[in-house]
């Protein structure tokens, strides 16, 4: 007589997976809280310059008081020559217009006003305080940024933000 029974023939008991959804939901909620939704994927390549002590734009994003403008070389290399300076604009929530129209300053004005006018009334802040965040490539010429700035001044949108990659405070 042996002390150890050989349980041959019996299969291993199944693992209880009833708490698996709980774990996954926990993960889900973590990601929902810790991340913000992506703006449109830009079709221009932007390598951001570095800077210190920049302001975090997340609170403005959550209240959608901010519009993003991208300035960089088109991803499609064949299109680079279509633009005078080689740099193209990409505005969020706008289908790409003709290359000729892409960097005409009127586009910015129209885009900003359209975005402002389509917002629900409850979310309306005066247009002066709706931020325009410029995400430009390292190599982008500053002249184009000042062109935008003048356009914004015309329609009285008086907040601009120059995006950088933050290096932290140390």
């Amino acid at each position: 007589m042996s002390k150890f029974k050989k349980d041959s023939g019996k299969s291993a008991p199944g693992i209880n997976t009833s708490s698996l959804p709980d774990i996954v939901f926990m993960l889900l909620f973590f990601f929902m809280v810790a991340t913000t939704t992506k703006e449109a994927d830009p079709t221009v390549r932007v390598v951001q310059p570095e800077g210190v002590r920049a302001t975090d734009m997340t609170p403005y994003k959550q209240r959608s008081e901010i519009d993003f403008v991208y300035l960089g070389k088109p991803m499609n290399k064949a299109r680079i020559k279509d633009f005078k300076s080689g740099f193209a604009l990409f505005l969020d929530n706008v289908a790409q217009p003709d290359p000729g129209e892409l960097y005409s300053t009127n586009v910015i004005r129209q885009w900003k006003l359209d975005k402002f006018n389509t917002k629900p009334a409850s979310m309306n802040k005066p247009i002066e305080s709706v931020i325009t965040c410029v995400k430009a490539d390292k190599e982008a010429p500053t002249g184009m940024i000042f062109d935008m700035r003048n356009e914004l001044q015309e329609i009285n949108a008086l907040q601009i933000a120059y995006a950088v990659k933050d290096l932290g405070n140390i």
Partner: peptide
């Protein structure tokens, strides 16, 4: 179902912060 939702959120969101220098434009 939960995994599906999780993956959806992983794909559509980003974790990187937008950092910028805010400047006021003078009134015209």
């Amino acid at each position: 179902i939960a995994f599906l939702l999780l993956i959806f959120f992983l794909v559509t969101t980003t974790m990187d912060k937008d950092m910028a220098y805010m400047r006021a434009i003078p009134k015209r």
